[in-house]
Amino acid sequence: MGDVASQSHDELTEMARLCRIDILRMTHEAKSGHPGGSLSAIDAMVALYGTDFRFDTSNPDWPDRDRFIMSKGHASPAMYSLLHQMGVLDVEDILGFRTLGSACQGHVDMVWTKGVDFSAGSLGMGLSFGLGCSIAAKMDSSERRIWVMLGDGETQEGQVWEAAMASSYHNASNLRVIVDRNRIQNDDFMAVQMEVGDIGEKFASFGWNVLEVDGHNISELIEAINWANQNESAPSAIIAHTIKGKGVSFMEDNPSFHGKAPNDEELKIALEELS
């Protein structure tokens, strides 16, 4: 992703701030959507596209691009904000979020949006899809890398572990996962709903390389991404410890903003905090 990759740490931090503003504006405009998990995931996504991730903004369908599979598809505002900040989507697209005919569907959709590699919306499927992309890349002797963004609540789906097992068995060394470990799911904290325990340890037990990082520290994230790219002995999982709703005081660590848009007053306060 040439354009983003050449940017400095400060520029990426600024980009993440602009993405957060987009996330809030589009969910406010739509009066629906999932700001909490978008705000927790966005720093890792900006960091990824800020490394040597292969993506051409003028040709998002380039067959040999690296893949980014947003398995937690409800955090679509994060994906759209990033594509907007990179110039793939325009402001009308993102403000049309969730409206009839919009390029920005409620959940990320590869049919509707340029630059989206997976049609998500049902949790637990993205890692399997990523494994399919990984196997295809190896069959083609292509160097493309496959990145999958998982939610931590999503790891309650058994299919995630079917895919983790198969990725190791098939030596999917070009496959990487980032887990957005914000500890909150739809209804409440995971500790209340269904705590999954040490996610990193679980991936490690399936033969994955695992690294735990602060999911809001751009430098740490970039180091982790580079570590994964340099450690191709096995598939890699980066457990990004995050705060749901990060960047907006009243949304932080607040389960009620998993799937609720900010109202007029809340948007005003949030934008002031991000200014």
Partner: peptide, 19 residues
């Protein structure tokens, strides 16, 4: 292996990559 849900999405990923 005995994991049909995984199989369907692995197949989808392969198809999205030109297979």
């Amino acid at each position: 292996g005995i994991a049909e849900q995984n199989m369907m999405l692995v197949a989808a990923g392969l198809a999205s990559s030109g297979k």
